[in-house]
Simulated assay, not measured.
Amino acid sequence: MSRLVASGVSVAVDDGRLILADASIEVRAGEVHALVGPNGAGKSTLFGVLAGDLTPASGTVTLDGAPLGGIHPRELARRRAVLLQSNTVSFPFTVEQVVRMGRAPWARTPAEDQDDAAVRDAMAETDVAGFAARTFPSLSGGERARVALARVLAQATPVLMLDEPTAALDLKHQEDVLRIVRARALAGAAVAIVLHDLNVTLAYADRVTLLSRGRVVAAGAPGEVLTAARIEEVYGQPVDVFPHPGTGVPVVVPRR
Rank of each mutant, 00 (worst) to 15 (best):
172 K>S: 13
132 A>N: 11
231 I>F: 08
45 T>F: 00
218 A>D: 14
72 H>A: 15
198 L>G: 01
29 A>D: 01
192 A>P: 09
205 A>R: 01
158 P>F: 07
186 L>Q: 15
69 G>W: 02
51 A>R: 09
231 I>N: 00
255 R>E: 09
112 E>M: 13
22 D>N: 15
175 E>I: 15
179 R>S: 12
181 V>A: 04
197 D>E: 08
32 V>K: 09
140 S>T: 11
62 T>L: 11
50 L>D: 03
114 Q>R: 15
221 A>M: 06
38 P>G: 13
5 V>D: 10
189 A>R: 00
227 T>W: 05
153 L>M: 06
98 V>A: 10
220 G>N: 07
157 T>M: 03
167 A>Y: 10
188 G>V: 06
162 L>R: 05
124 A>T: 12
61 V>R: 08
235 Y>H: 07
253 V>N: 09
119 V>S: 02
77 A>Y: 00
193 I>S: 03
9 V>I: 06
1 M>Q: 07
175 E>C: 06
130 G>F: 05
251 V>S: 07
79 R>Q: 13
253 V>E: 13
222 P>C: 08
51 A>H: 06
173 H>Y: 13
230 R>H: 00
120 R>K: 15
9 V>W: 04
112 E>V: 11
34 A>D: 06
126 T>V: 04
237 Q>K: 07
128 V>P: 04
99 V>L: 00
239 V>Y: 06
66 A>M: 12
25 I>D: 10
170 D>T: 12
138 S>C: 00
139 L>M: 12
227 T>S: 13
111 A>S: 15
212 S>A: 15
48 G>L: 06
13 V>K: 04
65 G>I: 11
256 R>C: 07
53 D>M: 13
197 D>S: 04
